[in-house]
Design a protein around this nucleic acid. Structure first.
Length: 482
RNA sequence: GGCCCCAUCGUCUAGUGGCCAAGGACACCACCCUCUCAAGGUGGAGACACGGGUUCGAAUCCCGUUGGGGCUGCCA
């Protein structure tokens, strides 16, 4: 095989859809593996989709995942002259005919037709082309078209069940099925790797392809139709019900490497009992013929777990760098999540303190957006109290007051480092007749505001004796008040 | 309705006629570790949709049934 040329051809929707991201990934992996070319083409023949702002999200999504195109983006909206030329040729060669039927006409006429769809009413009417006529492709009445699919084998479509489909709108605009074929030919695409939802339209494209071959023969690409990504109801991902924008996952704090790794696992798997594999392995091991045929559920839980593994594998420095958009965003200097800013004033963020906490936080999260709520108490004047936890662990616990009071006394005198604080705390809770496991709760609530979080004694040390004592006294007076 | 695709644990999958009394991962349960929570460790429960063939032998091949999905636009 010579250097293959593949293309990712989304319609512009404003964001990169996860299903499309998976399609792009499989195209990209195939191209990288075979030293081929990854072409990006924007399918915006429909004027409503041709606003260029709708392309930006796709570009940034691809870029985030490390799949910048080698060529393109080509925009179909910029190639109308070329399509017009092809339409002229097809018309002259007798493959197209004009049709002035409205949608209602067609529907009314085909209601009793055994094979729904257009019935070929205008086929022999020899209408002239005009501003009110669409152009239909004259499909053969007999025989069939076979799609040779790398993943599915040969799929046969009888022509008898194929209607004379519209190729050109009455406005003169070409439709997707035509533009798609013209572009694949003109850009010498060798492998068409796309979603299975396009399988039924493939024979139409093939018919156009061979009609065009009459004047200029171009080798047919190989086809590979990937299984759909589905939701928990086994339906294809919809933007109405499902979180389909890649951006959404980036905002939540998924790492590009983890996201890409997870996407690769949908419909394919690397050899051996392993799933967490680096991109080089993905490229080396990926084979189109090994792609699974059934639809795959996009499982955020599994993605989340994998992301946690990737996060834990980062060095502390890399981790700090990766979380920066969530703890110290600088929107004017780089990317920042669209989901909001940290709960503390930007000037209160302390790089040193955060660096101390980072390793403790890193091993407890699976998405980066979890970080702010784990360290907010360090950068806020007052901790945000989880009232439910407070009432359970402090207000309603008879030992809480004693623990808080003794902790204050102990902390006034003990050495101020994590080890000493822990030892002092252990003595306090044991004196109160409990253990560190249960007894630390009131202290944690008083200082961090929450019942759960990173280990307690490090942040106590970082916060400083004075501030810790202040928070403990404040908490104590609150319990004593009731 | 028509055409097409698909079918291994709840989920993603390994399996391409004997190595499968079906392996891994997520999720779930239990235990261990432990300052909370995670992480980690150990163990557990959990699947070849069904029915016919073919074969000495089938999760693997064929047919049918059932179930799911996609397409059926002058969207892509």
């Amino acid at each position: 095989m010579g250097a293959p040329r593949v293309r990712f051809a989304p319609s512009p929707t404003g964001y990169l859809h996860v299903g499309n991201a998976r399609t792009a990934l499989f195209n990209w992996l195939f191209a990288r593996k075979h030293n081929g070319v990854f072409v990006l083409r924007i399918e915006d023949t429909d004027e409503e989709r041709s606003r260029s702002s709708l392309v930006d999200g796709i570009l940034s999504g691809l870029s985030w995942l490390g799949m910048d195109p080698d060529e393109g983006p080509y925009r179909q909206s910029e190639r109308t002259d070329r399509y017009a030329e092809v339409v002229e040729q097809l018309w002259e060669d007798g493959y197209l005919y004009a049709c002035d039927c409205s949608r209602e006409d067609v529907l009314a006429r085909t209601r009793n037709n055994p094979t729904p769809g257009y019935d070929g009413y205008c086929r022999e009417r020899e209408l002239e082309r005009g501003p009110r006529t669409a152009l239909r492709f004259r499909t053969p009445d007999t025989g069939s078209t076979v799609v040779h699919d790398i993943i599915r084998g040969d799929v046969e479509f009888p022509h008898a069940a194929m209607e004379d489909f519209v190729c050109v709108k009455s406005t003169g605009q070409p439709l997707f099925v035509l533009a798609n074929v013209v572009d694949d030919r003109d850009t010498k695409i060798t492998h068409v790797i796309r979603g299975e939802d396009l399988l039924p339209t493939t024979p139409k494209g093939l018919l156009i392809w061979s009609a065009l071959d009459e004047r200029d023969s171009v080798p047919l690409p190989a086809f590979a139709h990937l299984p759909m990504l589905v939701n928990e109801q086994r339906k294809k991902l919809s933007k109405r019900r499902d979180q389909v924008a890649v951006e959404y996952y980036r905002d939540r704090g998924f790492l590009a490497e983890a996201f890409r790794n997870y996407l690769a696992l949908l419909g394919w798997s690397p050899p051996g009992d392993r799933e967490k594999v680096d991109v080089e392995t993905l490229i080396r091991e990926f084979r189109l013929e090994d792609v699974h045929r059934a639809g795959a559920f996009f499982d955020v839980k599994k993605l989340t777990h994998l992301n946690g593994e990737y996060i834990r594998e980062l060095s502390t420095a890399e981790f700090i760098d990766a979380v920066r958009p969530w703890v110290a965003p600088e929107p004017e200097r780089g990317w920042a999540p669209a989901t909001g800013t940290p709960p503390w004033p930007a000037e209160r963020f302390d790089e040193q303190i955060f660096a101390e906490m980072a390793p403790l936080v890193q091993e407890r999260i699976s998405v980066l957006s979890e970080v702010p709520s784990m360290v907010d108490f360090l950068f806020l004047d007052e901790p945000v109290i989880d009232e439910q936890a407070w009432s359970e662990r402090v207000a309603r616990d008879p030992r809480a007051q004693q623990i808080l009071r003794s902790a204050i006394e102990a902390y006034e005198h003990c050495d101020w480092d994590r080890t000493a604080i822990q030892a002092a705390t252990r003595a306090v809770v044991e004196m109160a007749g409990t253990n560190l496991s249960k007894g630390q709760a009131p202290i944690r609530l008083a200082v961090t505001g929450r019942a759960v979080g990173p280990p307690l004694f490090e942040p106590l040390e970082l916060l400083g004796r004075t501030e810790v004592l202040r928070r403990l006294r404040s908490a104590l007076s609150r319990v004593e008040a009731v």
